[in-house]
Design a protein around this nucleic acid. Structure first.
Lengths: 341, 341
DNA sequence: CTGTTAGCGCATTCAT
DNA sequence: ATGAATGCGCTAACAG
């Protein structure tokens, strides 16, 4: 089926009257090659458009020039932007990006981890699934020497560099925003307990409440279910059980939207009766939604930084150190407060 | 650095007292292996957690079990959902997904095409960059026998199967929606002329205007620039030059949002003075935005179908036929007209 | 049904 | 500075 099979090293060497090993070295700028032949080789290589076979190269050298990216979802603007940043940095370094979606499921993530242990990738970028409790599947890879960087949804039990946002601070800020707007009964919607991101956001929320003289009420803290519909139902239920609820702090985009739905369904007017603030990376949300305040994470930058840390390790052949971890700032976007574009 | 190197075929064969070829065949369920030894082999393989090296396999068999996905962007809900669908189908078939972003630039796309010609992938899924004029770089791959499926942003000059939506029909429907709402001066915002998607959407718009007794006015047709800021400026300029404009039909999500921005900037009230309808796949948009009507493409399904066509070709070892092309329906979502979830 | 042999394309010894 | 030989781990052609 293949028409014009691409030229290979041996054929190139043949045309030059050299051995393939010499050509191989010349192409890789080996120091032990005369500048003259190096130039000659590289010129012909360009001329005939020689493309080294990356598979063969990989088999021999154990370098795939590929990184694996593991994400819970991509239909969420945060991860979409993160991929964008990752891809940009990877491409700039000549790396390829293999992508895997876990749909927030632990089993899926384990399967993916086993794929990643087969030598397809030189390193891994991961945002853990919210359902993940044990990180053994990734730790095994780490112990084998595969560099890993966690971002956003991280777990401290997995000893790697991490790139996160100031979850505590922005949760505090978000809660404070509602408190200043007069809210006194603020619901807290979160993904799951076992992500550090969830814990830290809850702590920020608690701290803000206390600083404003309020006592955290466990009844107002809701952990997400698997489906949007279930979440909307739980939120609606909470709002009915606690009609005094006047504020909602959603720690992820989906839950902010579900809150919107739930309020609509119950006929609660949104900025007036209940105020909603939520993490979200839809640039459109703050533009389109009246009364919705968003906390926007620097998703693109997070992707870039995570990729940079990983690629630095790969190109310098150094391990990834936990000490390289980064914490970036989120941005509170109050509707109307943003500029033009 | 690598601690416990994974076991390989030869070692496995050694432990079983068999030759590696027998083991290889037993693992691949070859018909010419006795059920007894096949069972024995597979059992030990599971026990010692043998993972075949996909790189070596690829080098030998020219099968990478990987598909390449080329996208203009991912910070756009349409493509994000499409990836989701693609990934799901790929994973179900045991395929891996390599992702490349072109940022709508032709040069980037050429580079990517050359990567894809190196044997990393068994097939390609592509949504063309809007800046792409010639498709020679992909056609070369196609001629070499690499199966390609285009989706959404397709070009007929590249003879492959395509998966698209009913661009003509939905553009007609969108324009009609504005006409019925009383609009008489409707601007048409599009990406670029050289995508069939753009042409067909423009035709649908023209047809609707004519059917309502209006003459298409070229002055109202605007092609997008490179940056959002430039687009907002052009749209604002158009709205000032033609203050009679009472409707905007944006053929892509970004342009719908830019229209929103432009109206805001000029202080035009959105459902009252100017009505906007736009293609968009933010499930949130129709929920959040007052007065914004959206046409939602079945992005997830498009991704799935495109992947299915490609994987069918790969697993059956058949070429991709243009006759396998699919056209899916879009959905017009008028604000408030949608149900609960 | 199973074993032997060969080689995918490249990078790396080891020679010279 | 260059070439010859070896093998990465696997699959396939060719025996038996």
């Amino acid at each position: 089926m293949l028409t014009s099979a691409p030229i290979n090293l041996k054929q190139l060497a043949g045309q030059l009257g050299l051995s393939s090993s010499t050509v191989s070295r010349a192409l890789r700028d080996s120091y032990e090659i005369s500048p003259a032949t190096r130039e000659r080789v590289q010129q012909l290589a360009r001329q005939v458009n020689y493309q080294p076979n990356p598979i063969a190269s990989n088999l021999r050298s154990h370098v795939s020039k590929t990184i694996g990216v593991v994400l819970p979802q991509v239909d969420n603007h945060f991860f979409a932007s993160a991929i964008d940043g990752i891809e940009e940095v990877a491409q700039a370094h000549g790396y390829h990006v293999l992508i895997y979606l876990t749909h927030d499921q632990a089993a899926q993530e384990k399967t993916v981890a086993s794929f990643l242990g087969q030598g397809r990738v030189d390193g891994i970028l991961v945002a853990l699934a919210s359902a993940t409790r044990s990180v053994g599947h990734f730790d095994k890879l780490r112990q084998r020497g595969l560099p890993i960087v966690q971002f956003d949804r991280v777990n401290r039990l997995l000893d790697t560099a991490t790139v996160t946002t100031d979850d505590y601070g922005s949760a505090y800020q978000a809660t404070e925003h509602l408190l200043r707007a007069g809210c006194r009964t603020i619901a807290h919607l979160r993904l799951t307990e076992n992500l550090s991101i969830s814990r830290r956001r809850l702590q920020g929320y608690h701290a803000a409440l206390r600083d404003y003289g309020l006592t955290p009420d466990p009844e107002l803290v809701l952990s997400a279910s698997d489906t949007d519909e279930a979440n909307i139902a739980s939120i609606a239920q909470l709002l009915q059980q606690r009609p005094d609820t006047d504020g909602i702090f959603a720690t992820v985009e989906r839950l902010a939207l579900s809150s919107y739905h739930a309020c609509r369904r119950l006929g609660l007017s949104i900025p007036q009766t209940v105020k909603i603030i939520g993490f979200s990376n839809m640039e459109a949300a703050s533009l389109l939604a009246p009364g919705l305040t968003t906390i926007t994470q620097p998703a693109y930058a997070i992707g870039q930084e995570a990729a940079r840390i990983l690629l630095h390790a790969l190109t310098k052949r150094r391990p990834v150190l936990a000490s390289q971890s980064l914490e970036l700032k989120s941005e509170l976007v109050v509707r109307g407060s943003t500029g033009g574009a």
